[in-house]
Measured scan of single mutants.
Amino acid sequence: KCNTATCATQRLANFLVHSSNNFGAILSSTNVGSNTY
């Protein structure tokens, strides 16, 4: 594990990016499902 501020910031940034991608995918699939019905 790294405990430097830079490494922690990069890890946090990566986490936010992945979370945003997952959130966007969920919204996209939900919109497609609602449009189908």
Rank of each mutant, 00 (worst) to 15 (best):
1 K>E: 09
23 F>D: 00
9 T>Q: 12
14 N>E: 01
13 A>S: 11
9 T>P: 10
1 K>R: 13
3 N>H: 09
12 L>G: 14
4 T>N: 10
11 R>Y: 13
15 F>S: 07
32 V>N: 08
7 C>N: 03
32 V>F: 07
8 A>D: 11
10 Q>H: 11
1 K>S: 12
10 Q>P: 15
22 N>P: 02
27 L>C: 04
16 L>A: 12
19 S>H: 09
6 T>N: 12
20 S>M: 07
23 F>C: 00
20 S>F: 09
37 Y>T: 08
5 A>H: 10
7 C>I: 03
35 N>R: 09
13 A>Q: 10
19 S>I: 09
12 L>C: 08
9 T>Y: 03
14 N>R: 03
26 I>T: 02
24 G>A: 00
35 N>Y: 06
18 H>A: 09
27 L>S: 11
33 G>E: 10
23 F>V: 11
16 L>V: 15
25 A>T: 15
24 G>Q: 01
2 C>N: 01
35 N>L: 09
18 H>R: 03
19 S>G: 08
27 L>M: 14
8 A>N: 13
34 S>G: 11
12 L>Y: 15
14 N>F: 11
31 N>C: 04
8 A>K: 07
17 V>H: 05
15 F>P: 02
2 C>F: 02
16 L>G: 06
7 C>T: 01
6 T>F: 10
8 A>P: 10
34 S>Y: 12
12 L>M: 14
18 H>E: 04
10 Q>W: 09
7 C>W: 03
28 S>R: 01
28 S>P: 08
32 V>P: 05
9 T>F: 05
31 N>A: 04
35 N>P: 10
6 T>P: 09
2 C>W: 02
19 S>M: 08
28 S>N: 14
19 S>A: 02
37 Y>M: 08
37 Y>G: 08
18 H>Y: 12
23 F>A: 05
14 N>D: 03
16 L>R: 06
13 A>N: 12
10 Q>A: 13
29 S>N: 12
26 I>R: 02
19 S>L: 03
22 N>R: 03
32 V>K: 03
21 N>D: 00
22 N>Q: 01
33 G>K: 10
35 N>V: 11
27 L>F: 15
17 V>Y: 09
3 N>F: 00
15 F>A: 05
3 N>R: 04
16 L>E: 13
14 N>W: 02
35 N>W: 04
11 R>E: 01
25 A>H: 09
16 L>F: 15
1 K>W: 08
18 H>P: 06
34 S>E: 08
32 V>I: 14
16 L>M: 14
26 I>Y: 03
21 N>A: 02
32 V>A: 02
8 A>T: 11
31 N>H: 12
20 S>I: 06
22 N>W: 03
21 N>K: 03
36 T>R: 12
15 F>M: 08
29 S>R: 04
18 H>F: 15
33 G>W: 11
30 T>S: 04
16 L>S: 13
27 L>E: 04
26 I>A: 02
36 T>S: 12
24 G>T: 12
6 T>Q: 11
6 T>G: 11
11 R>V: 15
26 I>F: 00
35 N>T: 09
11 R>S: 13
4 T>R: 06
33 G>H: 12
